[in-house]
Every structure is written in structure tokens, then in C-alpha cells.
Design a protein around this nucleic acid. Structure first.
Lengths: 210, 210
DNA sequence: CCTACCGATCGGTAGG
DNA sequence: CCTACCGATCGGTAGG
């Protein structure tokens, strides 16, 4: 039997990460264990661990993978929109669509991981905190542009907008996963539109998960 | 050495719970272990477990204890206020004060536990979900009274108010514990006042933790 | 409330 | 990528 090729190893690496992201979104980043991952993937524990070295590195890679998915699902689709309120509304659409399609089986990965690690020191927590800060800065930048263009009331604090959008997303995630409230993304969408001063009627349907 | 009295046993029970609540707010309800609890309290594992029987029962007792603290800190202080908007504003004050005083060392226990368990079946999750539903119903009831009394705009959905207040509290908790943002309760307070259509100036200082 | 113990699982390593 | 193994810790039990 020949040694696995580089391409094979990369495929295995990707498969481990995919499973790790899904598992961690349900069980948490600490509840995630190498043994469980190995069983699910029909590998040995050493085989799994060999790709990352330590559990902390596995956790970090898992966080980075989940962040990439969030960016692809929520940030990227809004990049065609004009800076300012139009882009905030596009982000609001993509964000609620993302929450409605259960992109992660256990709910929003970042919300779960941030809550799990906000009381622990370490690199995982730092990575999560920095990512959330960057995301808030992205939202605040568009809010600032919107105020400048008078699309939002003069004197609006851009950080208040970023804070409010993030809070609504957390509330939607809880309503959906703790209570199984399927209408939560719609409620969140209305709250976001109200906050951004946009009309709330004629909402386009949320796209299905492809 | 005489057998421990009933009063002694009750004291031990209370001490275990107190430590368990603090530990779980930092490490999570699953990260909480009987061994760690025993070490902290200088007891044997069997001594700790004897008070609860199983880890699940310990988790349930811990959740109930934390819920009682939340009710004492946020619900009770607002009961003197008149039903409707006045009481919602009193709850908003108490809630932000509670978050600012770090009543639980790891941040809001209910937010952390709900996020941790929203993807797992079982009695702990059911207890958390029911508690959150009850709390949202309390908020919605006062919102309904406020709409009826025309303290909130006609047509306001009471559940939107409950949803919004809960979301803001989650956002404040994250800002405070993931980012160490000491001004988060104040930002949340302003967001709550705006949502409830109340003036935002002349805010009274948050009381210090006694 | 304790000591003493159980099987299972944890993260991780040695060696191939 | 595997087998085989390490010490530590997990939840829980027996017996007192």
C-alpha cells in the first residue's frame, strides 16, 4: 500500500475540519473531542491529531474554518451593495438568511464559541474576540457612511448600529435553537429594518439551503 | 465525631450550589465537574455527589439556583413599578445593573447555559427553555399593557419588545465579557430606552455590587 | 460524610 | 496514516 499523497492528506485535513466545525457547533469547542472525531471519520485518534498537533490547534483551525464560512455566507453576498445603508440592509438580509438556513447544525458557531470562551484566557478566546471586533468594525464603517450620506439620522452612533445588529442576530439564534422558533429570522429581519429606518413590507423570500 | 446535623447538611448543600453556579458560569454546565467542585470545597467526590445523586441533577439544581438569583436581581426590583412601560423601564435598569455588577463571574448564567444546551436534548435544556419562555412572557405582558395604555405606539408587537430587550441583554453580555467593554451596560441601557421611547438623559448611576 | 474502587474516556506520545 | 500505550480524570458505586 503506497504512502498517502499530498492531495490525499489535504482532503483528509479538510474532511476533519468540516466534521469538527459541525460537531463543535453542537457540542462546543471543548466538548469536541479527538476520540469522537476519529470515530465519526473512521480514523485513529493519532491520525486525527497528527493533522493539528494539539487540541488547541484543532480548535483554532476549527474557529478559522467557521469564520470563513460566516464571511462567505454573510459578508460576501453584501459586497456588491453600495457602502452605507444599502450594504447594511444587504448584510441584514444575508445574516437572517444564514440563520434561517441552519448553516451550522448547532446554530451560529461564533455566538456559541464566543459565549463558551468569553470567560477563559487563551488563543482561542483571543481569535474569537478579534474576529468579532473586526466584524463590528465592518458594520460600524457602513453605519458611519450611512450617517454621512444622511441615510441614518444625524447624530446616530455607528457603534450603536453595529451593537444593535449583532444583538438582534444573537437573539434570533437563541429563539431559533433554544425554542425552535422558525419565525425568528423574520422577526429579526423586521427589527433590523426598523433600526435601519427601512420599509418592512414586501420582503423577499429567504432562499433555501442549496 | 457526631453525625452531621440536618442544618449542617443544608449548609453544605448550599455551599456546593453556590460554588457550582460560579464555576458553571465560567466553565459551562458540562465543563463543571464533580471532582473540581470537590477539590474547591475540600470535600470528597462522593460527598459532593451524595447531595444530588447524578451530575444531571447537580446541573438542574445549579440552573434553578441561578434562575433564582436572576429573578432576585432583575425581576424583583421592578415589581414595585406600575405595570406597562414603567415596569419595563425598571426591568431595563435592573437588568443592565445586574450585567454591570458581574453577579455571575463568567457573565450571564442563563445566556451561557442556553447557548451551551440549545443543541442538546434533555432535562437541563428543557428547564432553560421553559425559564426563558416564562421570562419573555413576563416582558411581553408588560409590553402589552404599555401598548394598551398608549405608552408604546399602537400596533407595536409585544413579542417584538420582549425579543428586543432579550437581544440587547445578550449583546451587552457579549461586549462585556468577550471584549471587556465596561461601557456595554450603558450602551444597552440607551438602546433599551430608545426602544421603549423614553428620554435617555440624566441616567442614574448604576449601584455598586454590595 | 469518607475511602477505595470501577470501567470509560480524555489529550497526547512512541515508534513504525 | 496505524497500533499500542501513558497518566490523568471523568461520572458513578460499594460499603461503611
Amino acid at each position: 500500500m503506497p504512502r498517502r499523497s499530498v492531495a490525499d492528506a489535504a482532503r483528509t485535513h479538510a474532511a476533519i475540519l468540516e466534521r469538527s466545525i459541525d460537531l463543535a457547533s453542537v457540542e462546543g469547542l471543548e466538548g469536541l473531542t479527538i476520540g469522537r472525531l476519529a470515530t465519526d471519520l473512521q480514523m485513529s485518534k493519532a491520525g486525527v491529531l497528527g493533522h493539528f498537533g494539539t487540541k488547541e490547534e484543532l480548535q483554532l483551525a476549527t474557529v478559522r474554518g467557521a469564520l470563513a464560512i460566516f464571511a462567505r455566507e454573510v459578508w460576501e453576498p453584501a459586497q456588491e451593495a453600495a457602502p452605507g445603508r444599502a450594504r447594511l440592509l444587504a448584510i441584514a438580509d444575508a445574516w437572517m438568511s444564514y440563520l434561517g438556513r441552519d448553516v451550522f447544525p448547532g446554530g451560529c458557531f461564533m455566538t456559541a464559541a464566543s459565549t463558551e470562551f468569553d470567560g477563559r484566557p487563551g488563543r482561542v478566546r483571543d481569535t474569537l474576540a478579534r474576529a468579532n471586533e473586526r466584524w463590528m468594525a465592518v458594520l460600524a464603517a457602513d453605519a458611519r457612511a450611512a450617517v454621512k450620506a444622511e441615510e441614518l439620522p444625524r447624530g446616530t452612533d455607528p457603534q450603536d448600529i453595529a451593537f444593535g445588529m449583532n444583538a438582534i442576530a444573537m437573539g434570533v439564534n437563541q429563539a431559533r435553537h433554544l425554542h425552535g422558533d422558525a419565525s425568528a429570522p423574520d422577526r429579526g429581519w423586521r427589527a433590523l429594518r426598523t433600526m435601519l429606518g427601512a420599509p418592512r413590507a414586501r420582503r423577499r423570500a429567504l432562499p433555501r439551503n442549496p
